[in-house]
């Protein structure tokens, strides 16, 4: 059993164990730190930087940094909120995110975070980059306009031998995720749905599954992202 230690998040003391990351410690204590590329049970990719917190005065990603005794963590200063908004705004202007016509709208983590941070319009100019839509697979459609290169599908969707169905191809600004042509033919319905679920945006879509839930009943229509974690924290404080 790992040692019990205390950490401070936004000047408030919380207890956790040494084997946790800052993100895990915060979550178990009901403190919400936003994540996009993070996937529990897999190695952190730390690519999106949205979970950046100040640790003893230095910016670090909460999903990959282990906790330490007496750590002082800032999670809600104006500076951190502005950084997080910038990260989201960069994603919204770099890709082509046409929310009104997106199948994932209402269930999209990127959109939900923008709602949480009340982004009314991004501060950066829209790029409108040319991206392709790959509809060659029988089960799924990949819309590269919306991909934020978080690598969640690459890390999560694997066959029984541990081979990833998705992989990165090319480099730099040409980098994109591609479904393996051969392996993709073996994609089961369950894995296809898992891929759509694991995608934090609307880049991986299962055929004939778009717009299934009516507006008003979708995941983030009424409840903001992270509300479940915060409610757990409130219940814990109450006990």
């Amino acid at each position: 059993m790992a040692d019990r230690i205390s950490i401070y998040i936004d000047k408030k003391e919380y207890f956790t164990t040494e084997d946790k990351t800052i993100l895990e410690a915060a979550q178990e204590n009901g403190v919400y730190i936003p994540t996009l590329c993070h996937l529990p049970e897999t190695e952190s990719s730390t690519s999106c930087r949205i979970c950046t917190v100040m640790v003893n005065g230095r910016p670090l990603t909460a999903c990959s940094t282990p906790v330490g005794e007496g750590m002082e963590i800032d999670n809600s200063t104006t500076q951190i909120t502005e950084w997080r908004k910038s990260v989201l705004e960069i994603m919204f202007t770099e890709g082509n995110h046409f929310c009104p016509s997106c199948e994932k709208s209402g269930n999209c983590r990127l959109q939900a975070l923008a709602y949480r941070y009340q982004i009314m319009a991004p501060q950066f100019p829209y790029q409108f980059n040319e991206r392709e839509i790959d509809a060659t697979n029988d089960k799924i459609i990949q819309d590269h306009n919306r991909c934020i290169i978080c690598k969640r599908c690459v890390r999560a969707i694997k066959d029984e031998h541990g081979r990833s169905f998705f992989a990165f191809i090319d480099r730099g600004h040409k980098l994109r995720v591609r479904l393996d042509r051969k392996l993709g033919k073996e994609l089961t319905d369950e894995l296809a749905e898992a891929a759509m679920e694991v995608c934090p945006v609307g880049s991986i879509l299962v055929r004939e599954k778009g717009f299934e839930t009516p507006i008003g009943q979708r995941k983030y229509d009424l409840e903001r992202i992270g509300a479940d974690i915060e409610q757990n924290g409130q219940m814990k404080n109450h006990e």
């Binding site: 919204f92 082509n96 046409f98 929310c99 009104p100 016509s101 009314m120 319009a121 991004p122 829209y126 409108f128 980059n129 040319e130 991206r131």
Partner: peptide, 15 residues
Amino acid sequence: GECAIMGGLPALRND
């Protein structure tokens, strides 16, 4: 609305 903010559906022609 979205069109005023980001071009919206007419901006689908932007690439």
